[in-house]
C-alpha cells in the first residue's frame, strides 16, 4: 500500500524510508503486530520445522530433508564453528546453526514474492540477536577466565611497555565491549536495509516506465529497470547468504574468544 501512495504522484519518485514504515496488519490491531514481526515468527517456525523434520529421527544414511539439513550443519561446523571453537565445537553447534539458519531465513524472506520484506532491515531484530551474543560473550568470559582475568586479558595484552597500557587499555575496552557488538548488529541491518531499498528502486523504475507512464523514450529505461531488478535480486541472494554467514561467524569468534584468552 506504500507503493501505491508513491505512485499516486504525477512524477517518478524514488522509494524512500516509507518502505520501512510499516503499519499494524489491520486497523485496530495491536501496534506491535506488523509484517516484520509475523515474518520473524514465521522464520522461527520454518527453522524449527526444518530441523525437527531433519534431525528428530535421523538415519545413518541420510536421505531427503536430512541430507539437505546435514549439508547446512556441515557447512556451519566446518566453516564457522571449528576454526574458532576447536574442540568445543559440538557444544555450540546448536546455537550457531540456529543463528545461521534464522538469519538466513530472515534475509531470504526479503526476496520471496508477496512477503518481500527482510526482517533484519528493522534494526531491533539484529540488535536482539547481537545483544544476546554480547551477553553470552561476557558471561562466558567471566566464567572461564574469572571476572578480573577476563577484563585483564582483554584490556592488557601482554608484552607491551608498561606506560603505554594507560593509553591502549581504553581503546581495547571501547573496541571489544562497545564497537564490536554495535557493528555486529549494524552490519546485518545496513546490508538488508540497503538491499531492500535497491530492489525497490529498480522495480519501481520498471513499473513506472512500463506500466504507469508508458512513453517511447521511457520504455527503454523501464526495460533497464526490470533487468536490473533481476540482476540485483541475484546479487541480493548472495549478500543474504554472506551476511547470515558473517553474523554466525562473528558469534563463533566472540564465543571462542571468551572461552580461550588470546595467546
Amino acid at each position: 500500500m506504500n507503493a501505491l501512495t508513491v505512485l499516486a504522484a504525477d512524477e517518478f519518485k524514488a522509494p524512500g524510508l516509507e518502505l520501512f514504515e510499516i503499519p499494524p496488519l489491520w486497523d485496530g490491531a495491536p501496534f506491535w503486530l506488523t509484517k516484520p514481526v509475523v515474518l520473524a515468527v514465521l522464520s522461527s517456525l520454518l527453522m524449527i520445522g526444518l530441523c525437527w523434520s531433519a534431525f528428530s529421527n535421523p538415519k545413518l544414511v541420510p536421505r531427503g530433508i536430512q541430507n539437505v539439513a546435514e549439508m547446512g550443519y556441515m557447512f556451519v561446523r566446518d566453516q564457522i564453528a571449528r576454526p574458532f571453537l576447536g574442540k568445543d565445537t559440538d557444544r555450540w553447534m546448536g546455537l550457531l546453526l540456529s543463528i545461521f539458519l534464522l538469519v538466513w531465513l530472515w534475509n531470504l524472506l526479503g526476496v520471496v514474492p508477496v512477503l518481500q520484506f527482510p526482517v533484519a532491515s528493522h534494526i531491533a531484530f539484529p540488535i536482539v540477536l547481537a545483544a544476546s551474543i554480547y551477553l553470552l560473550k561476557i558471561y562466558l568470559g567471566i566464567k572461564h577466565q574469572g571476572a578480573i582475568g577476563y577484563f585483564k586479558n582483554m584490556m592488557f595484552p601482554p608484552g607491551l611497555p608498561k606506560f603505554i597500557y594507560v593509553l591502549l587499555a581504553p581503546i581495547e575496552f571501547l573496541s571489544n565491549l562497545i564497537i564490536a557488538p554495535f557493528t555486529h548488529a549494524v552490519r546485518l541491518f545496513a546490508n538488508m536495509f540497503a538491499g531492500h531499498m535497491i530492489l525497490a528502486f529498480f522495480s519501481m523504475v520498471g513499473f513506472w516506465f512500463l506500466f504507469e507512464k508508458l512513453t517511447p523514450l521511457g520504455a527503454p529505461v523501464g526495460v533497464v529497470g526490470v533487468l536490473m531488478t533481476i540482476a540485483m535480486t541475484g546479487f541480493e541472494l548472495f549478500i543474504q547468504f554472506l551476511q547470515a554467514f558473517l553474523f554466525a561467524l562473528l558469534a563463533a569468534m566472540y564465543i571462542g574468544g571468551s572461552l580461550h584468552p588470546e595467546h
Binding site: 576454526p83 574458532f84 581504553p170 581503546i171 581495547e172 571501547l174 573496541s175 571489544n176 562497545i178 564497537i179 564490536a180 557493528t183 561467524l249 562473528l250 569468534m253 571462542g256 574468544g257 588470546e262
Partner: peptide, 20 residues
C-alpha cells in the same frame, strides 16, 4: 583463525582509537 580474528578486529580498533 588468527587471520579472521585480525581481519575482524582491526577496523574496530582503528575506529575505537579515533573516537576515543
Amino acid at each position: 583463525r588468527d587471520f579472521a580474528n585480525a581481519a575482524w578486529s582491526i577496523p574496530s580498533y582503528l575506529l575505537a582509537g579515533i573516537i576515543l
